[in-house]
Simulated assay, not measured.
Amino acid sequence: MNTNREIRWVAPLMIVLLVFILGASLIVKAVEVYGDSATKEMPETAQNAHDDAADRIHRTSSEGDGATAVKSMTQTSASHEMMNQTVTAVGTPRIATDYISIKAAEHLEAEALKEQQAKKAKKLAALEKQQKLEKQKALAQLTAEKMKTTPPETLFFTRTELLTQADKDKSTWDYPVTDKELLMLQKIVMAEAEGEPYEGKVAVANVVLNRLRSANYPDTIKDVIYQKYQFSPVANGRMDRVTPNEDAIQAVNEAMHGRKEVPDDTLFFLSITLADDLTVHHSQEKVKTIGHHTFYK
């Protein structure tokens, strides 16, 4: 009789222990699949079923019917398995949807970052381009000022043209300019084009330098300027009387640096209204007119 009583108490304890073990295994499995949200989002009916089953097992064990308790435990296990399958079936699409949403957000974030970087690079390139243009402009202005104020010490030529100082490596011959020759150039420009536009002064200097390069004229600046019957201010003495002004000096400097108001093959000019001899006008090809002077080749 005592033995039966002990067995009666052992059976309920074992049943309760099995229930706890089963419940713990279900919780661990739910956490692995869904995380903490799985247990929170468990359908209310499933939770109620779990509570009812536990309560039923407890009542059965208390009444002392071991066989009935075992049967109830089996039914509870089957119910838990069905509940697990239901939760899994419901949770899997949600997990897939969340994964897709996360990936879509990551893609949008990456695209936004890429677009931002592209805009930044474009802005930086535009800034660098603007700075480069400003630097080039400043350098050009500095070069232009230098061309006006500082004459080159040497002229560089090819057979057909006067070169700039930057292109001197292309020259086939060069001509060192003395201070006396520089003054002669300034005086002849002043004497010939004192009342002419600045471009006309540069053009007169161009003609002198074109003759220096040409094989049909003397080989020095002095001899080109003082060649007989070529420049009227030399013949009438005006060249010796004038003092070059700032425009004449700058025009000569720029012409020697390579500024050209007329082409390299322009070798003549005259004022049609003042010239006594119009042979050039009738025999040479006109290039252009600047002020009162007409230039020919």
Results as ranks from 00 to 15, higher is better:
214 S>G: 08
237 G>Q: 11
244 P>E: 12
289 T>H: 07
268 F>G: 10
205 A>R: 04
283 S>C: 05
258 G>A: 08
209 L>S: 12
261 E>G: 04
220 T>L: 10
251 A>F: 01
190 M>L: 01
252 V>Q: 08
285 E>F: 00
231 F>A: 12
267 L>A: 05
245 N>I: 02
262 V>A: 04
197 P>V: 04
257 H>Y: 05
198 Y>T: 11
220 T>H: 05
278 L>Q: 14
192 E>I: 03
209 L>M: 09
230 Q>N: 14
250 Q>C: 04
207 V>C: 09
221 I>L: 13
247 D>L: 05
217 Y>E: 07
213 R>F: 06
291 G>I: 05
193 A>I: 08
255 A>I: 06
284 Q>H: 12
218 P>R: 00
283 S>F: 00
245 N>Y: 00
201 K>Q: 12
282 H>C: 03
238 R>Q: 14
205 A>I: 09
200 G>P: 04
209 L>C: 07
204 V>I: 11
277 D>P: 13
260 K>I: 07
236 N>H: 13
290 I>H: 09
251 A>C: 04
260 K>V: 11
234 V>Y: 10
276 D>Y: 12
203 A>N: 03
198 Y>P: 12
273 T>V: 07
190 M>V: 01
190 M>F: 02
255 A>K: 02
225 I>L: 02
281 H>R: 10
228 K>Y: 13
185 L>Y: 02
288 K>P: 13
277 D>R: 05
230 Q>G: 12
261 E>Y: 06
197 P>K: 00
228 K>E: 15
217 Y>C: 07
216 N>T: 10
219 D>E: 11
287 V>T: 14
209 L>P: 11
207 V>K: 09
253 N>V: 06
202 V>Q: 06
260 K>G: 08
267 L>G: 08
243 T>D: 08
211 R>M: 11
215 A>M: 10
275 A>N: 07
268 F>P: 12
274 L>E: 15
206 N>A: 03
254 E>N: 03
198 Y>S: 02
218 P>K: 00
255 A>E: 06
236 N>E: 15
216 N>E: 15
287 V>Q: 12
253 N>H: 07
208 V>D: 10
238 R>C: 03
222 K>T: 13
261 E>L: 12
288 K>Y: 05
219 D>Y: 00
186 Q>D: 06
204 V>M: 08
211 R>Y: 01
272 I>N: 08
230 Q>P: 12
195 G>M: 01
276 D>T: 13
235 A>Q: 15
273 T>M: 03
252 V>A: 13
190 M>W: 00
233 P>K: 07
291 G>T: 01
211 R>G: 14
185 L>I: 04
212 L>Q: 08
244 P>T: 07
232 S>P: 13
260 K>E: 14
194 E>T: 05
283 S>V: 03
183 L>T: 13
214 S>W: 00
245 N>C: 01
198 Y>E: 05
280 V>N: 03
261 E>H: 07
225 I>C: 09
283 S>Q: 14
250 Q>R: 11
192 E>G: 00
188 I>V: 14
239 M>I: 15
262 V>N: 05
269 F>S: 10
202 V>K: 04
251 A>E: 07
283 S>E: 15
189 V>G: 08
265 D>S: 07
272 I>M: 11
267 L>R: 03
192 E>L: 02
186 Q>W: 02
274 L>N: 13
198 Y>F: 15
225 I>K: 04
190 M>C: 00
213 R>K: 13
181 E>T: 01
240 D>S: 09
266 T>D: 06
217 Y>N: 11
